[in-house]
């Protein structure tokens, strides 16, 4: 670990937070419509209905905040999953949780004509939970129990199954296609701030709860025997972990659609940085996850201007080399 003393860790986290805020500002300022810093302030103090002010209030600000919250949630969800499964490749995208949530939402839209965001969230939670449960259950078979390889394979099989179902439903119901296509691409663009406000209470609660279970998670990450030996209620810890993953990943998918790799990349950067103590890992993941998704989102605006690359594509391009590096290095958590 690079940051050894608690002081260094606090300092690192503070620097991270400053960069985080800078990224929010950057995400508001950079883009097709040029905007200056003073315009951002004016838009909220002296709003004058001008084009720039409207862009700031209705587009850039929601987009920046969405990217920040979703990035943070996906990274924390990844960290929890990796601790729970002791597998550095576990993350919502690879284990099919995103695909499951996506399939449930598309089913709701096309078969039951549900279109309100409030319902979307619960349906996405349900989908995330179903996929997570199936994958976890399937990969627990066998003498060795949950092996990293089985987890990833079961996850990718379920992801393939769910996305094929989604495709099939979309073909059968073209109207649904129009309503969900923008969402399926995985993007933080054009999301109403209200979407975010719906999920924020759940996601915020999950962040706080994550800090509370960080200590038991530490023991669990070493091994279930150790955790039991230390007198912990393993079942309770695991259950809360699962609940947090479902809320964080499901909520993110409900707002932004499936965005992969944040949950793999960030925890694997954070662990060498701050060690294996989840009381540090979680806040660092939240900050760095937000930064990564905002940075990916801003660069996505410039690569093929005036068009935009969906941010899910950006994170895949950044994340794949990382994934391969971990797969080559072996499955150690260090």
């Amino acid at each position: 670990m690079i940051l050894k003393s608690p002081k260094a860790k606090v300092a690192g986290l503070l620097i991270g937070m400053i960069v985080f805020v800078a990224c929010i500002l950057g995400s508001i300022i950079f883009g097709y419509t040029s905007i200056t810093f003073s315009m951002v302030i004016d838009a909220y103090t002296q709003f004058d209905q001008s084009n720039e002010h409207l862009v700031i209030r209705n587009e850039r600000m929601p987009r920046a905040l969405t990217a920040a919250v979703i990035g943070a949630s996906l990274a924390v969800a990844g960290a929890i999953m990796q601790a729970l499964t002791r597998n550095p490749l576990a993350s919502p995208g690879i284990l099919g949780v995103n695909a499951g949530a996506g399939f449930f939402v598309v089913t709701a839209v096309s078969l039951f004509s549900i279109t309100s965001m409030q319902h979307f969230i619960w349906i996405a939670f349900l989908g995330a939970a179903t996929a997570a449960f199936i994958v976890y259950f399937l990969s627990s078979f066998g003498k060795e129990g949950l092996s990293p390889m089985k987890l990833v394979l079961a996850g990718s099989a379920m992801a393939a199954l769910f996305s094929s179902f989604t495709q099939g439903l979309l073909v059968l119901n073209e109207q649904a296609l129009d309503e969900v296509l923008f969402w399926l691409a995985g993007s933080v663009q054009g999301r109403d701030i209200e979407y975010l406000l719906y999920v924020l209470p759940y996601i915020g609660a999950a962040w706080i709860l994550a800090m509370f279970i960080a200590r038991p998670v530490n023991a669990l990450a070493i091994g279930e025997d150790v955790a039991a030996g230390l007198g912990q209620k393993i079942g309770l810890t695991k259950l809360s972990c699962a609940l947090l993953v479902i809320v964080l990943a499901g909520g993110s998918v409900a707002v932004a659609g499936p965005i992969g790799f944040i949950g793999i990349v960030i925890p694997n950067i954070v662990r060498p940085l701050v060690g294996l103590d989840h009381r540090w890992i979680f806040p660092y993941c939240a900050v760095l996850g937000g930064i990564l998704l905002m940075a990916a989102d801003v660069s996505a605006r410039f690569i093929i201007m005036p068009q935009e690359v969906p941010v899910g594509v950006m994170t895949a391009v950044i994340g794949t080399p990382f994934f391969i590096y971990i797969a080559r290095r072996g499955m150690s958590m260090k």
Binding site: F141, L153, S164, G168
Partner: peptide, 30 residues
């Protein structure tokens, strides 16, 4: 089955294939 709509063949191969894959995973679990 869903005529006049066409469902891509890939949907049905995945429908059989994904469970089969999981079965293989189960069979090779050790």
């Amino acid at each position: 089955v869903f005529s006049p709509l066409e469902v891509p063949a890939g949907v049905f191969t995945a429908l059989i294939g994904a469970p089969y894959f999981i079965y293989l995973l189960f069979k090779n679990r050790n």
